[in-house]
């Protein structure tokens, strides 16, 4: 298991390096119309050019930045916000908790993507819209996970003891609960990033992405929008690479996340 986690971590590191060193690795800026439309791969354009003459290889490398940015931003905000809500709800219990549970039930039942589409349709297509919608739809699950953990932690005796000794709520939370929750939060950060990258590429594919920011999902969408994509060899270097990149990054986040989860919480049975 840890071996898989290591593989995942390595891939992730690889992508991070790609993102960081993007300007050095790419001959062109991704918005540069450096070639003729639909060129086949050559030394000047390693993966050829897209329909308007932009270098696909450059788009792919810079796309790493977008994917990582989205993955990390969404997971950070949703995990933190959801975490706080889950913590408070689990800690105080009573009607707050009941309300949250009710909300979670409803949230889980309602189909997400149709509602996401509806929401995103009202706002102009921009990176901020995508990030906002993704955070909106992921924090409830984070809250649920944290809440479950808090509930099981609440039963520990040292909490009762501390409370009897006169500890205030926030002290209990800060001193005892949050440290216990950290492993969960960390592994969730990684797993949630995996979801965010997948969800963003899906939204971009459906046409909700920012057309001037070439995320991998957007590159895929533009490739498929090219009517002759299945009738010319272009799919090999325009369609496959972004799809493979998305898959690899999600793969990396997933296995790293599960490895972390197992490491911190060996009683969990999700992992092997």
């Amino acid at each position: 298991m840890s071996r898989l986690g290591l593989i995942g971590g390595t891939i992730l590191l690889f992508f991070c390096l790609l993102a960081f060193f993007a300007p050095f690795l790419t001959p062109y800026s991704p918005n540069n119309f450096s070639g003729q439309p639909l060129e086949i791969p050559s030394t000047r354009h390693l993966l050829g050019t897209d329909g308007s003459g932009q270098d696909i290889f450059s788009q792919l490398i810079y796309g790493t930045r977008v994917s990582l940015l989205i993955g990390l931003t969404v997971s950070l905000f949703s995990t933190l916000f959801g975490g706080v809500v889950g913590l408070l709800s689990g800690f105080y219990g009573k009607w707050i908790d009941r309300l949250l549970m009710r909300f979670l039930d409803i949230f889980l039942t309602i189909p997400h993507l149709p509602l996401m589409l509806l929401l995103a349709a009202y706002f102009p297509p921009a990176l901020v819209t995508t990030i906002f919608v993704l955070i909106l739809f992921s924090w409830p699950l984070e809250a649920k996970l944290v809440r479950s953990q808090v509930l099981s932690l609440k039963k520990r005796e040292y909490l009762e003891a501390a409370r009897l000794a006169g500890a205030k709520d926030y002290y209990l939370m800060y001193r005892y609960l949050i440290p216990e929750l950290t492993p969960l939060i960390v592994s969730q950060l990684v797993l949630r990033s995996s979801w965010a990258v997948l969800a963003e590429s899906g939204l971009a594919f459906l046409g909700l992405g920012d057309p001037s920011i070439k995320s991998w999902g957007m590159i895929l969408k533009q490739a498929i929008s090219y009517e002759a994509i299945y009738f010319t060899p272009n799919w090999q270097w325009w369609l496959l690479p972004p799809g493979i990149c998305i898959t690899l990054l999600i793969f990396a986040f997933t296995f790293l996340g599960y490895a972390l989860e197992e490491k911190f919480n060996p009683t969990l049975k999700e992992g092997v």
Binding site: S201, G202, G243, I246, T247, I250, F251, T254, Y258
Partner: peptide, 15 residues
């Protein structure tokens, strides 16, 4: 199974 889930649905369908 987990690797399978890493493949975006629309990419899988396209392939």
């Amino acid at each position: 199974f987990l690797s399978l889930r890493s493949i975006p649905t629309f990419f899988l369908g396209t392939l």
